[in-house]
Amino acid sequence: MEPREAASVETGSERTGENQAPGESPAIRGLPPAPNGSWSLASRIVIMLAIVVAAIGVLLHLTLVFLFVAPSNAISREYGGLVDGYVYPEFDQNWQLFAPNPLQQNIAVHARAQVKFADGSVRTTNWVGMTAQDIKEIRDNPAPSHAHQNMLRQAWDFYNRSHDEKGRPLGLRGELSEAYVRRIAAHRIGPRVDGGQVVKVQIYASNTPIVPPKWSTERVDTRTTYQVLPWWPVSKEEFQ
């Protein structure tokens, strides 16, 4: 689209319009020339309907998408149901790229497993640094895979977004996010460790704030904080 070009063409047309003979109706040129000389009434009706539908469609789509991406306001609250109903799921979008603030901490997710052996004994594995595995794949890679750059990172984000501060799941999404994170851990560890069956997994995350630049006046607590989840039983199907 070339809005500037369009504008210049229109100014040009205005100037010619000024010199136009008063009797000449400009409306004649509103449509491209018809193949048989003039458009039939039926054709005109169809075209006018199409124009009206297209105009309303564009206006409605852009308004609803605008209200969706804009901060919550009086209008978007009043028509929230309509906006969400239209935008979800296929026009869903979020353009707050590193905004309002970029993420200011490195989050590393770790997992360990409880392994049950044939003799009935139960052992706990060491912690597996799942994020460290991702980072190893990303380093020196010009095109990192979504499997390393996005899967665990966004699953963990999804988990935190769909749980309250006390770690209780919020509705269906909370439940789904738990299963997702649990299965990622299960896939990374594998169904069997040292010949025993993995029956439970536990996950914890460490949040390490990024130190502000030396020349910044910002003072932050740079100590790492931890988020430890309870043991989760994991079924055999979840390793597939």
Binding site: V9, E10, S13, E14, T16, G17, P22, P26, R29, P32
Partner: peptide
């Protein structure tokens, strides 16, 4: 007239090509 012409021009542009 200018407005009419502008509207006609606009319509012509969006329907003609």
């Amino acid at each position: 007239i200018k407005l009419d012409t502008a509207i006609a021009r606009g319509l012509n542009r969006i329907t003609g090509a």
